[in-house]
């Protein structure tokens, strides 16, 4: 188990339990986190699970793959900290992870 905190575009923060081996997107959907749509269900095909990884966690989450970067072209207000949450696998190392969700996904 790892704790993940989602901070929405209005600053409200929600901390939930995440299962190691699942994805950050799946964790968000299971816990009804707002501002994560995940229209394609995790196929890296829609860019509606866009999150901004908290700066302090970037080294641990790693960078977007080439395919994910391509898909991020469909997201809005992309920043250097942008990731698609369906592509971040939860590991024990990510216990305490903080991600911010954008105001608009699609």
């Amino acid at each position: 188990m790892a704790k993940i905190t989602f901070v929405d575009s209005e600053g409200k923060s929600r901390t939930v339990d995440a299962e190691v081996g699942s994805t950050v997107m799946e964790t968000a959907i299971r816990n009804s986190i707002p501002e994560i749509l995940a229209e394609c269900g995790g196929a890296c095909a829609c860019a509606t699970c866009h999150v901004y990884v908290d700066e302090g966690w970037l080294a641990k989450t790693g960078k977007a793959s080439a395919m994910e970067e391509d898909m991020l072209d469909f997201a809005f207000e992309v920043k250097p900290t942008s990731r698609l949450s369906c592509q971040i696998k939860v590991t024990a190392d990510l216990d305490g992870l903080v991600v911010n969700t954008p105001g608009k996904q699609g």
């Binding site: 394609c40 196929a43 095909a45």
Partner: peptide, 10 residues
């Protein structure tokens, strides 16, 4: 539909 548009190769 979604099969072709979102995950044709999946």
């Amino acid at each position: 539909g979604q099969c072709s548009e979102l995950y044709p190769e999946k």
